[in-house]
Simulated assay, not measured.
Amino acid sequence: MKGEHDKEESSARHRPQLRTGGDQPVDPEDLVRLSGREPTPERVERARKQLEEHGAAAVERYLP
């Protein structure tokens, strides 16, 4: 029979890794799609500027 300590240790090993949007590379077209819009040249250019200015924080607006 497993004790309480064994249960806690087992569940800690099997927890999924949570990821945020900013921990992966994103290109401007991805950022436009994250906003729920279709990429157009104007939107992609605006997204490129957002990524240059804000970096990963630009993605965090749309993803947790």
Rank of each mutant, 00 (worst) to 15 (best):
R46C: 05
D23H: 09
E45M: 09
R33N: 06
R61H: 10
E60W: 01
L34K: 02
H54I: 00
G22Y: 07
E38Y: 11
G21R: 04
Q24D: 04
A56K: 05
R61V: 11
L51C: 09
E38M: 05
T20M: 07
V32H: 06
E29R: 13
P28S: 15
E60D: 12
G36L: 13
R37D: 13
P64K: 00
E9Y: 10
V32R: 06
S10K: 14
R43F: 08
Q24L: 11
E53Q: 06
E29M: 08
G21I: 03
D30W: 08
Y62W: 13
H54D: 14
K49P: 04
P28C: 14
A12H: 13
E29T: 11
E45Q: 12
R43E: 12
D27G: 07
P39D: 13
D30N: 06
V32L: 07
R37V: 00
E4G: 06
G36M: 13
E29C: 05
R37L: 10
S11L: 09
G22A: 08
V59Q: 07
K49S: 11
V59Y: 11
Y62I: 01
A58Q: 01
G55V: 04
E38V: 03
D6I: 01
P41D: 04
D30I: 00
K49T: 09
A56M: 02
G36P: 00
D23C: 12
R61Y: 11
Q50Y: 01
P39L: 15
D6N: 07
G55M: 02
S11R: 15
P25H: 09
A57M: 03
V32D: 04
K49N: 11
K49F: 03
R19Q: 14
K2C: 06
R46H: 11
T40P: 03
G22N: 07
L63S: 01
A47E: 04
D30H: 08
A57S: 09
R46M: 09
E9T: 14
R13L: 13
R48E: 12
A12Y: 09
E60M: 01
E60K: 00
G21K: 05
T20C: 12
L18A: 09
G3F: 00
R43I: 00
R37H: 11
G22Q: 07
E9N: 14
Q50V: 00
R13A: 10
P64E: 00
E9K: 15
R61T: 12
L18M: 09
V32Q: 06
E45H: 07
E38H: 03
S11F: 08
P39Q: 14
A12Q: 15
L34R: 06
V26C: 05
P25N: 01
E42F: 14
H14D: 08
P41L: 02
K49I: 06
L63H: 08
T20Y: 15
M1C: 15
S11G: 03
R43Y: 05
G55F: 07
S11D: 08
P64G: 02
L34W: 13
L18D: 08
R61Q: 15
P16D: 02
E45P: 02
R15P: 10
T20S: 14
P16Q: 01
P16S: 01
A12S: 15
P16R: 03
Y62Q: 03
R33W: 11
R15V: 05
Q24Y: 15
R46F: 03
R13V: 07
D23E: 15
V32F: 07
